[in-house]
Design a protein around this nucleic acid. Sequence first.
RNA 1: CGAGGUGUAGCGCAGUUUGGUAGCGCGUUUGGUUCGGGACCAAAAGGUCGCAGGUUCAAAUCCUGUCACCUCGACCA
Length: 480
Amino acid sequence: MAKQAKQEFVQHITPREENFSQWYTDVVKMADLMDYTPVRGCMAMKPYGNRIWELIREGMDKRFADTGHENVSLPMLIPESLLMKEAEHVEGFAPEVAWVTQGGNEVLPERLAIRPTSEVLFCTMFSQWVQSWRDLPLKYNQWCSVMRWEKTTRPFLRTAEFWWQEGHTVHATAEEAQEETLLMLEVYRAFIEDVLCIPLFTGQKSDKEKFAGARATYSVEAMMQDGKALQAGTTHNFGTNFTEPFEVRYQNKEGQLAYCHETSWGTSTRLIGAIIMAHGDERGLKLPPGVAPFQAVILPIAAHKGGVMETCEEAKTQLQAAGIRVKLDDRDHLSPGWKFNEWELKGVPLRLEIGPRDIEKGVATYMRRDTFEKGILPLNSLAEGVRALLEDITREMFSIANQFRLSRTKDVFSMAEMGEQVNVGYARSMWCGRRACEDQVKEAFSATSRNMPFDQTPIAPDCVVCGEAADKVMYWAKAY
RNA sequence: CGAGGUGUAGCGCAGUUUGGUAGCGCGUUUGGUUCGGGACCAAAAGGUCGCAGGUUCAAAUCCUGUCACCUCGACCA
């Protein structure tokens, strides 16, 4: 009875079906990923959330290096005149640029934009760094934060300042640039599906939805548990759209001056939002082992009893030696039950309990965060057992998310079907390619075109909107 | 940016209608008993009531302004 009264004061997470947005906010706050700050729309990432971002960075950075990219660091300020050089780009970003107008007490002769993205700076530098065909390609990336003056913000999904990586490359030929654009899309897909366990729709954006100044934009689109789409990463082929105004030229083997072909690609802290909304449940966060700050947490049971803490320490040492990120929760003022809930809330993939009964049998009791399945692992080969479980958890998390995605994706052949389907997930349809039809979908259902899959095998002859001949397969959804 | 809502101790809230000098639970600190799904006892610390004006003998409470956050819509990684 005392226990029941107590329950009322334990903070609970709003159920997903009741209010998905509130559930998201609850999880973000209660898992201690971030905090709000005195700066409008800007968040502080707390250690736990920041560590997830670091692990995402480490994982992706390795893949960038493996595909021949180098990291650089460019200024966070961009002179207004530079930003104005590419018309479409200016138009796209102008409404959300923050400006620095004063340095110390002096009003600046030219105001400086706080970077919303760095295409123009990279192009300016590229124009100085490239002379000969021998200098190409330049394949650079930077990890930094950027600022966009968003009207409304939400932790990780849309913040005024956000952390990201932006890759920028220049190449001698259009073919190479296109190859790079698709290569990085594949790097994103592989990382997000294999490590973050989030299944994706991969394809090309419509002209309406493509990046300001790009010739072609590609995206990886994820599905959240409310059926809405979240763009998890994009890659752009700019052709010579920027390199012409910025005069990024090289002398080719024939001695002629030619414009470079440019690409850029980015992913951001939004990926953390994607992890939360793709995997989380009523007990909180559910982290894929690949980016979990702690892949396993060891909880001593009756820690004061003989041998318990010693066994826990040994287990920790064994797991650490095997390269597993492990936490031994030795706080003695909290009950086991409290810790169970806390680590579930924080999404730790695997819980290991070690108490007198386990030690007697030479085992640790485990519980998987993904399936809540319980079992035992022999202590003398704990690392092997944990490793195998973490691998299985990774597979299972992808599988569960993928089943959900498939169950919420449907081919549609009429506007009525489209309207129903975008309320629960993604709709796939034929599309004639006209902007007017996209606008109509937006108008009717507030859904947008997400991307055109690489498999363009027609599923019908006519555009789902206008009924005229159509040759494009398109995915549609309501988006974050 | 439009509509609605909320700002009181680290967190969650009561108190505001009807002005009288701030309270509850959790958490925190100290000591002790506990420990296999949110333990218990005892003692203690912690708040210029988002901010700025105004009304009043007196403001968390009334008035004006302002800021922040949340939810729902329109735009964006």
